[in-house]
Amino acid sequence: MAIINAMSENTTTLTTLSKAEVAAFDSIYHQYHHAVFKNICKLVTQHEVAEDILQEVFLALWNNRHKLDLENGAGGWLFVVSYNKSMQYLKTSAREKLVLVTHPQLPLSTAEEEPNTLKDLQLHLINDAIEKLSPKKKMIFRLCRLEGKSLQEAAAILGISPHTAKEYLKASSTFIKNHIATKQATIPAAGLLLLTAYFQY
């Protein structure tokens, strides 16, 4: 697996890594990678680039595994980080195109990542909004948006019709978008409102 290989290059060799940590990481990857990739593709249409960003997201998870509080699962953190890395790519790409047109002789520099304070704010707002949803809407959102389940799969898990599941997802996505937009008015933060692009149903 490319991500495991990248992990070994950025830490020590795999023979010295904790088997429990690798097993836990592997479990999270298999649970969430489909959902994360789908979210990345909402912003980044190039398949190969989206795959590279997916790897960066899970490499960041591995590198930060000892600092993260994943009591509520890894979905929210992966959701936020995949958004930020997608936006980082889009900003860098746009900047590079502008530089190439206006100053083709200048070297290109990569964009800095969003500061941790913004990531924390984004994650807090998402978790806060999710907690305000009704139990079934909360579960539908987590299953479909954070775990990559289809509406049919989520409906079967909750014992409701796919149509009802779709309506719940639509309502929960709209609520969370509005929640973030409202907070944007009182807590201005660059890139915060664009996060709502990830809540299209």
Rank of each mutant, 00 (worst) to 15 (best):
C41I: 14
I28Q: 05
E21V: 08
Q55I: 15
H33F: 03
E9Q: 10
T16A: 10
Y29E: 11
N72V: 14
H30C: 14
N63I: 05
G76H: 00
K42F: 15
N72L: 11
L14A: 14
N10Y: 02
T45A: 12
Q31W: 01
T12W: 01
I28H: 01
G76Q: 05
H66F: 09
T13N: 14
D52Y: 08
W62Q: 03
R65W: 07
A35I: 02
D69P: 07
A50I: 09
E48C: 03
L17K: 03
N72A: 08
H66K: 01
S18G: 01
D26E: 09
K42E: 11
T16I: 05
N10L: 10
A74E: 08
N72S: 06
H47Q: 13
L14Y: 11
E71P: 14
F58G: 06
V36I: 05
E51A: 12
A74H: 03
G76R: 10
T13V: 04
L43R: 06
F58T: 04
F25Q: 00
S8L: 02
A20V: 11
L68C: 10
A60T: 04
K67M: 12
E48D: 07
S27D: 15
Y29N: 07
L17S: 05
L43Y: 07
L54E: 02
W62A: 08
S8E: 12
H34K: 08
N64T: 08
E9Y: 12
F37C: 09
A23N: 07
G75C: 04
T11A: 13
I53L: 05
T11D: 04
D26R: 06
V49T: 09
L59K: 00
V22L: 12
K67I: 12
L61I: 00
Y32P: 09
D52H: 07
T45K: 10
F37R: 08
Q55W: 06
N64H: 09
F25A: 11
I40D: 05
A60V: 08
F58H: 03
E56V: 13
E21P: 04
A24E: 15
T15H: 10
T12M: 14
A24T: 11
E56M: 13
K42H: 13
A24R: 10
F25V: 09
I28P: 01
V36A: 07
T12I: 10
A35Y: 00
T16F: 12
S27Y: 11
Y32K: 13
F37T: 15
A20Y: 04
H34Y: 00
S8R: 05
A50R: 00
N63V: 06
Q31Y: 09
Y29L: 14
N72T: 12
F58E: 02
N64M: 12
H34N: 06
Q31L: 13
A23K: 12
V36G: 01
M7W: 04
I40R: 01
L59W: 00
A74F: 08
E51Q: 06
L61W: 05
T11V: 06
D52T: 13
V36S: 04
T45W: 12
S27H: 10
E21G: 15
V44H: 05
L61N: 04
G73Q: 01
F25Y: 08
D69F: 02
Y29A: 14
T12S: 15
T15M: 01
F25T: 13
T16E: 09
H33S: 10
E9I: 04
V44D: 01
H66P: 04
N64L: 12
D26H: 10
H34W: 03
Q31E: 11
V22M: 13
I40K: 01
I40A: 13
L59I: 04
D69Y: 10
A35E: 01
L14S: 08
